[in-house]
């Protein structure tokens, strides 16, 4: 197990380095940050001085190396636009995104598994078929469209829920949460559904097909032959076997939820990291973009690692026997 983790960590580092290099090499195509930083009345000298000061005159491998040197020490530089520490801005924005992601992930996983199991057990039932057909909509509609439709229906027409923002937040010192106020909770509903709907339908369809596969296995037949009740068979024997492959996909989808939050946050003007990133692109705020991309890569790599370790907990066959 230790060998495995060490090896995976090594691979993860390599992936991070490559992902970072690719991200860095793209920044030159986004535009020149200096155009935005200096106003109309700039001189060529000013431009040149700032360029040298920011280190933008150097080739990108050198920039990348310097950036890594600083980054491993926790220093991600100053935002060009806001002039503040990037890490400080991130810490301020992170709670919004994390709360949104956590709520929509919980919604996606719980409802996805429950509906998946239901549609698998009642395979030919009317309700199950209805759910399956409806789920096609969830899979095929893009997130932003779902968001706009939800806003149109619940905010514009019915006026039940707010269409943008986080509502009132409570500051807990290092974390500001929207979970403690009514307006904060209300504000969470639409964006979490918009963000989680696709993942929910995906998980549901996956759980259904895996479960159907498992229910065909001999050990399920044998469990029936032992006289176990359908309930024990479905929820004890079948569900656990179903979860083995499903856990990988869920893990990767959690990463996707945070990464795709960009779109949802834009639609709902949610003050999180995704919105920060979109604004940073418009302003060519390289330190913010770099930090965001690094954060997303680290997250994906970590989730993958955790999923691999989780596997061993669910499936005893993958536990290396320590004889």
């Amino acid at each position: 197990m230790l060998t495995f983790i060490v090896r995976r960590l090594g691979q993860s580092l390599l992936v991070l380095l490559v992902a970072g290099a690719v991200a860095f090499s793209m920044f030159r195509f986004v535009g020149d940050p200096i155009d935005n930083m200096l106003g109309q009345e700039r001189t060529l000298e000013d431009v040149e001085r700032l360029r040298v000061q920011l280190g933008l005159d150097q080739p990108f491998p050198v920039q990348y190396f310097k950036y890594l040197q600083e980054a491993v020490q926790g220093n991600f530089g100053l935002s060009y636009r806001q002039g503040r520490e990037v890490s400080e801005i991130f810490l301020e924005r992170a709670p919004a995104t994390l709360e949104l992601a956590a709520i929509s992930a919980t919604f996606a996983v719980l409802l996805g598994i429950a509906l998946g199991v239901y549609t698998a057990i009642r395979r030919d039932g009317f309700v199950a078929n209805l759910i399956m057909s409806a789920s096609l909509i969830g899979v095929s509609l893009p997130t932003f469209l779902i968001g706009i439709l939800l806003i149109y229906l619940f905010s514009v027409e019915l006026g039940w829920l707010p269409s943008f923002g986080r509502g009132d937040v409570v500051n807990l010192g290092w974390w500001n949460t929207g979970l403690l106020t009514e307006s904060g909770l209300k504000a969470l509903i639409l964006p979490s559904i918009a963000l989680g709907l696709y993942q929910m339908t995906l998980i549901m369809r996956l759980v259904r097909s895996e479960m159907l596969e498992v229910l065909r296995q001999d050990y399920i037949r044998f469990a029936r032959a032992r006289g176990l009740s359908e309930r024990t068979i479905n929820f004890r024997h079948a569900l656990k076997n179903t979860m083995v492959p499903v856990v990988t996909i869920i893990g990767l989808q959690l990463g996707a939820i945070i990464a795709f939050a960009i779109i949802t946050e834009t639609v709902f003007q949610w003050p999180g990291l995704g919105l920060l990133f979109i604004n940073a692109i418009q302003f060519v705020d390289i330190p913010v973009m770099a930090a965001y991309l690094m954060m997303i890569s680290v997250m994906f790599v970590l989730i993958n690692l955790i999923v691999d370790i989780l596997y061993a907990f669910i499936d005893p066959r993958l536990r290396v026997s320590s004889k």
Binding site: Q217, Y219, H237, K240, N241, I314, D315, P316, R317
Partner: peptide
């Protein structure tokens, strides 16, 4: 090989 559930002792 297939009539026992692999995930339970």
């Amino acid at each position: 090989l297939t009539s026992l559930n692999p995930l339970f002792t």
